[in-house]
Design a protein around this nucleic acid. Structure first.
Lengths: 189, 189
DNA sequence: GTCTATAGGAAGATAGAC
DNA sequence: GTCTATCTTCCTATAGAC
């Protein structure tokens, strides 16, 4: 073992994800990634032979798993009412995005690199999973299939948009406002 | 005059803006910017002694002016009804964002570079101008000040979010859905 | 599995001819 | 005002010791 203490895989991917999220894929230099990971560049290449691109892919997959276990699983748990589950999701989003102060990895990684953007498919999978799970809850609450789907997608739009506008205005108010009305907007008849 | 034909200032800024918008600030290399401008790197430095950062700043200012003249001025024109003006704005947004296929420069430039992000203030100015002008129209339509402001901000959230989700899903449907309901959502009692 | 050291190339920026 | 040529710095990635 070297001078630096190893972190477990989940923590490593979380730290790398924070860098990609905060400064984007192009902006995330190996120096910054290594610094955040508490490793040196060559050590990162040992763990990720595919370099930066592989790091981002594993980070995305890990974030998708985290989302599924911590936000979507509770949504699927039919032991509580749809409204309670939506309220729980809103609290989960608040916590995950640090009250609106933290950007979304999906937005950060979906930008740039034109045709060579290999992140499109995994990003789409994460969004689809979210929209689909949320849509099921709304179906369960009595909405018709079309409305449920549309509203779930609008929730994702509101989430991403409120994060962008919060960052643009330098205040978390848009994100807070979004979360506050989220369950009502989703369930209104 | 060299081998390449000069373009006027507005067209130059438009082309540079397209690069920043499509691949982000970090991703936009001088080579790509020069290629898009139809100039060589050194020529860009003659026009923009401050380099890439100055280019992005002028691009932002130019885009803000364009927005003001082509989207906000019509909103302020009280010779037509609020609803007509909002419908006109929706058409303008459709055209400006190529039906949802084109990213927003504000989102692209508001990312990354942490403390050294000098684009924060101009970005905030553009968003504020949009929200403020839209809010005035809603006031005129009879909404109270608080609701008008909140809805105008929600419109910006929907715009940015629908662009992000459209890109993420690889379809312009979210953007189209946003535009379709925009005037009604803004004016509903 | 982590480190030091470095190769090899691309990035931003400049010098100076025309 | 544009070009060719070049400088310096930084970046990605690899080699090889421990």
């Amino acid at each position: 073992m070297g001078r630096r203490t190893s972190v477990d895989d989940a923590e490593l991917l979380r730290r790398l994800g924070a860098v990609f999220r905060d400064i984007g894929y192009e902006g995330a230099t190996l120096a910054a990634l290594a610094e955040s990971a508490g490793l040196h560049k060559a050590s990162l290449y040992h763990r990720f032979p595919g370099g930066k691109e592989q790091m981002a892919h594993e980070v995305l997959e890990h974030a998708g798993q985290w989302l599924d276990e911590n936000l979507l699983a509770p949504l699927r748990d039919s032991s509580s009412s749809p409204r309670d589950r939506l309220a729980r999701m809103a609290r989960g989003l608040h916590s995950f995005y640090a009250g609106g102060a933290q950007d979304c990895l999906l937005n950060a990684l979906s930008m740039g690199r034109g045709a060579s953007n290999s992140f499109g498919p995994p990003i789409k999978r994460v969004i689809d999973a979210f929209v689909s799970t949320l849509s099921s809850v709304l179906l369960e609450a009595g909405l018709d299939r079309t409305t449920a789907r549309l509203r779930a997608e609008r929730a994702m739009v509101g989430l991403q948009g409120s994060l962008v506008v919060s960052r643009g205005l330098g205040t978390t108010r848009p994100f807070q406002a979004f979360l506050k009305t989220l369950p009502d907007e989703l369930l209104r008849p």
